[in-house]
């Protein structure tokens, strides 16, 4: 899922300051599951903003609403009447959702309440680990299902560097060396010989440095 974290309160208050009526818009998909921008987090932030406004004697109305997904037109289209009634929309979705809301309601100020951090899964309740960079050229079949692009700090493709110590990465003792994890994974599956496969220099042209990437499924395109 896409993982996000709420922005610092100072930033949020600064964004909200010029507005008197704000729609706080949650997203029911990834950011609900990663406990950053779902209905519950909308309720918490809305209460905080109202308390702050009351305390400061400011006139601020916060409307709370959460839609299934902010990254699809159909869902965002449904909130048209709500958006019309406010000065600004503060979105608690990932950057994708914020941008779609902004694109569909260009006349409104659309404010991001979250920092979109990475794609990952929960390693325990409340803790998420980045697993995928979306590099556009998957190698998981070569590395025992552990992504060396994401989980190795240097994105090495042919084994660990000299900074791998006791199974940990030199940049942080809490971070596992991706190649140690790959080694253990291959070993447990009886595929240790895969470590001998040499990976040639990687083609990074799919990884996003050439501007925004586009995916077209021609058979699904409706003109």
């Amino acid at each position: 899922m896409i993982v996000g974290e709420r922005k610092p309160m100072g930033e949020i208050l600064e964004m909200i300051a010029p507005h008197e009526k704000v729609l706080l818009l949650g997203c029911g998909t990834c950011v609900t599951v990663c406990l950053a921008g779902g209905e519950r987090e909308v309720g918490i932030l809305a209460a905080q903003l109202r308390i702050h406004a009351k305390k400061e004697g400011k006139d601020l109305q916060i409307e709370e609403h959460t839609i299934e997904r902010q990254c699809e037109n159909e869902w965002v289209d449904e909130i048209k009447s709500r958006v019309e009634g406010v000065d600004a929309v503060m979105s608690m979705a990932c950057g994708v959702g914020v941008q779609l809301v902004a694109e569909m309601y260009p006349e409104k100020a659309i404010l991001p309440a979250l920092n979109t951090t990475f794609m990952g899964y929960p390693v325990q309740h409340g803790t998420w680990l980045e697993n995928c960079r979306g590099c556009g050229n998957c190698v998981l079949h070569l590395s025992g299902g552990v992504c060396p692009i994401t989980r190795c700090a240097k994105s090495l493709m042919n084994g660990p560097c000299g900074g791998s110590q006791d199974g940990k990465c030199e940049i942080d003792e809490d971070i596992e060396c991706a190649w140690q994890v790959i080694y253990e994974r291959l070993k447990s599956g009886g595929r240790l010989d895969w470590m001998n496969n040499y990976q040639p220099p990687r083609n990074w042209s799919t990884a996003g440095s050439g501007g925004p990437r586009k995916s077209v499924k021609i058979e699904e395109v409706v003109d």
């Binding site: 519950r40 309720g43 918490i44 209460a47 905080q48 109202r50 308390i51 009351k54």
Partner: peptide, 10 residues
């Protein structure tokens, strides 16, 4: 829920 606590304060 955290919202209960905040709502009471609010």
């Amino acid at each position: 829920e955290i919202t209960y606590l905040l709502k009471a304060l609010e």
